[in-house]
Design a binder for these strands. Structure first.
Lengths: 241, 241
DNA sequence: GTCTATAATATGATAGAC
DNA sequence: GTCTATCATATTATAGAC
């Protein structure tokens, strides 16, 4: 994906050297600012969150934010880059795992779908930073006024890794069929991540939206049915129902 | 839905009375401001669009915006209310039409899905105001910093009208099943409206995303397959693929 | 009704003390 | 490294001329 050097976690040094301890404290402050930003950007648009709010939430002065992260745009990019790679890595790792399990055979449809859908849904249930991040990420993806918008448009390659697997398992589908169905699948996922509470309301609490495993299996089931059994295009000409 | 008095079109008076003509001109200015706002809010977040930009785009002074629409929040609500009811009315009208055609029998699944999905998709293909509006609407729905956010959460009743029809056509589904599947269906629709150009990019132009009829039949097919043939929950315990 | 001018406030960014 | 104070700018909203 982008900037793969942002790969691991924060290097927390444990030696007794004073300057290093100061570095640690500095790093901790920086992470606290990133945490606060992530929290605020998770539920509000980029432009509507001010640096002053972020500073207040992180319990630092405004200048400290600029000191560690530079401009507001740079701050947003830092929030993004801190976790961005991990998600796609999870997807691809799940896909590879399913490949291995298939032992040369075609990967079962549910395995492909799970690799595509599980990481995002799982993250969205994380009460910590990953849950905030995934919301933040989807929000940015839909907000062209965020400085990240163009970055997302370059992040398509890892999705293309899924296409041959769908093709192998469902050889009767054209590549266009697969892309359309993947598109709708991702839509269902995004909506689930950002608007699951809406389902609570519409269904008057009938749906158990607090259970991650059920949510995943619901969406995988839905998309499995669609991928496997959707009628083909074109349907009756001049459709009228 | 909300504020059903905002139902019809602009009353364009045609008498020769001077004061009325002035009213017309005033109304035209107001609509031009609303058009410009709609255009800007369609692609950018609420907070990131300034009144000055709107005034410039509408070719009026800043004060004129305030004169006609009041505060920025009120302006946004006006943009919303100008077209909000129409969409749900279209959905419900399509559903009623399908009911009539069914002559007392259960409405065919495709008819229900089309009523749910067609209006939004059709609007999104409208090069005029409706196309901008539907993008604006979905953007607001995902942006809790917009003053409209809470309004959307009250707009659930018209969706509930669809539930009994699904139940009648697919009696083996529980109500929870139906709500989950409707949720994923709406997600696919939202994503299609806001991010169809992404599909272009991911598929390297393989999918014909410029054809409205094909798009509708693609999504209806997808959701028909899902509604009709999705495996039931719960699946294998401790699913492992 | 529409403009220009301006008030009141908020913002991103930085300078300088410690 | 972190703070307070401040700069330059942009914003919403309004007052007042025409």
């Amino acid at each position: 994906m982008l900037e793969p050097e942002l790969d691991g976690d924060i290097p927390l040094n444990t030696t007794e050297d004073d300057s290093v301890r100061r570095q640690d404290r500095s790093e901790v402050t920086k992470q606290r600012i990133l945490d606060a930003s992530e929290r605020l950007f998770a539920t509000r648009s980029f432009a509507s969150v001010s640096l002053r709010e972020i500073a207040k939430a992180a319990e630092v002065g405004v200048a400290t934010v600029n000191y560690h992260l530079g401009s507001k745009d740079d701050l947003l990019k830092a929030v993004f880059l801190r976790r961005a790679i991990e998600l796609n890595r999870e997807r691809v790792a799940l896909l590879s795992e399913a490949e291995t399990l298939a032992e040369g055979q075609a990967v079962p449809l549910r395995g492909i779908l799970r690799a595509l859908l599980l990481p995002g849904i799982r993250w969205s249930f994380d009460p910590g930073g990953r849950g905030l991040f995934i919301q933040f990420m989807i929000r940015c993806q839909l907000d062209p006024s965020s400085p990240l918008y163009e970055l997302f448009y370059r992040d398509v390659r890892h999705l293309q890794r899924f296409v041959p697997h769908f093709k192998q398992t469902l050889p009767e589908l054209t590549e266009a069929d697969i892309h359309w169905r993947m598109h709708f699948t991702l839509g269902a996922m995004h909506y689930t991540i950002t608007d699951l509470s809406r389902l609570d309301q519409v269904s008057s609490g009938l749906c158990n939206t607090s259970d991650m495993e059920e949510t995943v299996s619901r969406i995988v089931n839905f998309c499995e049915g669609a991928f496997r059994f959707a009628p083909f295009n074109p349907p009756l000409p001049q459709e009228r129902l």
